[in-house]
């Protein structure tokens, strides 16, 4: 562990300064911000633009312009159904980024709470909690995910909650995917946080607070959690790409989001079937694949930058 930690409060200013010196990380941050901007702005733009433009770029609008190469009309070309690929990549980005963010947050919340409680309370509780983590570690996560998606999807269908609202059902189904992915990726977080908390627990400022009569909740909230901020934010940036990749794998297995909705995973697995010796509709793999890889690269560089800036170790 690093030796000089601020006593409490927000992350220190030096960290920000160190981060700003890391050029790849800064470029990545700008790239991600830019991507986010387009992803958010594009649907709005479609709403306010002329009907003709909106129709042409509606991600779900089928047309006869099947497999057309990139052109001024369709910047990324079109797919089998004649849908505009540019729009589909951007709408797919919504899903993929959301999967990444929500999945990472879910894994973060479970992981931080689990690890913090285990590390802080210690003793038998710690042992039990960490044994559970061990068990889940040894279970191939794909079995868990497959069962979760097939089972809960079925239960959802039967429940009265969504019986009369297919829109709500669709939203819940996507949420299920997010939560499922988050639920299988919190284990590492729990282990790291526990380690951090264990070492912080015995430190002077925590001991002092305890001596002054601070309860465990207060100590966790005021001293411990702020001090693991660096780990957490770094981890967030590094978990997102993993979860986005996992989603694309699930799409390849046919377990991803429901058509006609798209995610980068479904777009890429559509595109991959275009790689063959006879004819390649290259735009169907290059564009979704390129955007995915660029985003994951940016997230990784960002995560590395954050980690170096906060001097986080022990992943």
């Amino acid at each position: 562990m690093s030796e000089q930690k601020p006593a409490q409060g927000l992350p220190d200013k030096n960290a920000w300064r160190r981060f700003q010196k890391n050029r790849p990380a800064v470029v990545s941050a700008w790239f991600l911000a830019f991507l986010l901007l387009i992803v958010i702005a594009w649907p709005v733009l479609l709403k306010i633009s002329s009907a003709n433009f909106a129709q042409l770029h509606n991600p779900d609008q089928l047309s006869d312009a099947q497999f057309s190469a990139p052109s001024l009309q369709h910047w990324f070309g079109t797919d089998l159904h004649g849908r505009d690929l540019f729009s589909r990549v951007l709408f797919g980005a919504q899903i993929s980024l959301l999967v990444g963010v929500v999945g990472a947050i879910v894994s973060l919340v479970i992981g931080v709470l689990w690890g913090a409680v285990a590390g802080y309370v210690g003793g038998r509780v710690d042992a039990v909690l960490m044994r559970i983590v061990d068990v889940l570690y040894s279970l191939p996560s794909i079995i868990f995910v497959i069962v979760l998606i097939t089972t809960l999807g079925g239960l959802l269908k039967q429940s009265h909650l969504v019986q009369n609202s297919p829109a709500l059902e669709g939203a819940l189904r996507v949420t299920l995917l997010f939560v499922g992915l988050g639920a299988v990726s919190w284990l590492t977080m729990a282990r790291i946080v526990r380690g951090q908390v264990l070492s912080l627990r015995t430190r002077a400022f925590v001991e002092a607070s305890r001596a002054l009569g601070g309860g465990p909740v207060r100590i966790l909230a005021r001293h411990i959690i702020p001090n693991i901020f660096g780990v957490v934010i770094t981890y967030l940036a590094l978990t997102m790409p993993a979860i986005i990749l996992y989603e694309s794998f699930l799409s390849y297995l046919g377990l991803g989001v429901q058509a006609p909705m798209a995610s980068w995973g479904t777009l890429i697995s559509d595109g991959v079937s275009q790689i063959n010796p006879i004819r390649i509709y290259w735009w169907m793999i290059i564009f979704p694949g390129g955007v995915l890889v660029a985003t994951l690269l940016a997230l990784n560089f960002l995560g590395d930058g954050l980690r170096d800036a906060w001097d986080v170790k022990g992943r």
Binding site: L62, L80, H81, P166, Y252, L253, G254, L255, A259, P260, S269, D270, V272, S273
Partner: peptide, 27 residues
């Protein structure tokens, strides 16, 4: 009423024929 059209997924790079037909039917 809104209703659902059910079809089987293609796993592992298999043919997506059913999904593709479903998308056209929807429209």
């Amino acid at each position: 009423p809104r209703f659902e059209y059910m079809f089987d997924a293609a796993a592992g790079g298999g043919s997506k024929l059913h999904q593709d037909i479903a998308i056209e039917l929807q429209q």
